[in-house]
Design a protein around this nucleic acid. Structure first.
Length: 124
DNA sequence: ATAATGACATGTT
DNA sequence: TAACATGCCATTA
């Protein structure tokens, strides 16, 4: 279990109900700016212990191919939390995006440089 | 050790 | 708007 993996899991678990984040955002919050793809396989492996359905790609779309966790299931789970999903699996990510406050980010023990990036990119 | 793979992201065409 | 190319990096083969 790598530290990277632990961080990802820790972060995904923090996502509030009714909110979503992008893979890239989670990755950045874990201190790996370009590890979006890795977030995917971690969720695939640990889908039973994290709210994987609150993580979508930055285009606001669901494009997963997993057998246990198919797109249809994800849509249902999201709608259950009050998130609107169109028929073509499109979501208004900016409307529902989780924007963590500085306090939360500080708890992740990130370098200031990353915290600034996150704030700049996702909360301004 | 090297190469291929993938629940992605971003910039160019 | 959509398709294509390139960058990423942990895991697998």
């Amino acid at each position: 279990m790598s530290p990277f993996k632990q961080k990802i899991i820790q972060i995904v678990k923090m996502i509030p109900k009714g909110n979503v984040v992008s893979y890239g955002q989670v990755s950045l919050m874990a201190g790996v700016p370009r590890g979006a793809r890795q977030v995917g396989w971690i969720l695939h492996q640990h889908g039973d212990q994290v709210p994987w359905w609150r993580v979508i790609n930055n285009a606001g779309r669901i494009s997963i191919k997993s057998v246990e966790h198919h797109a249809n299931l994800q849509r249902d789970l999201l709608e259950k939390e009050g998130i609107k999903v169109t028929k073509n699996l499109n979501i208004d990510i900016e409307k529902y995006r989780w924007k963590p406050d500085e306090k939360t980010l500080n708890n992740l023990a990130l370098d200031d440089e990353y915290i600034f990036k996150i704030l700049e990119k996702y909360t301004f």
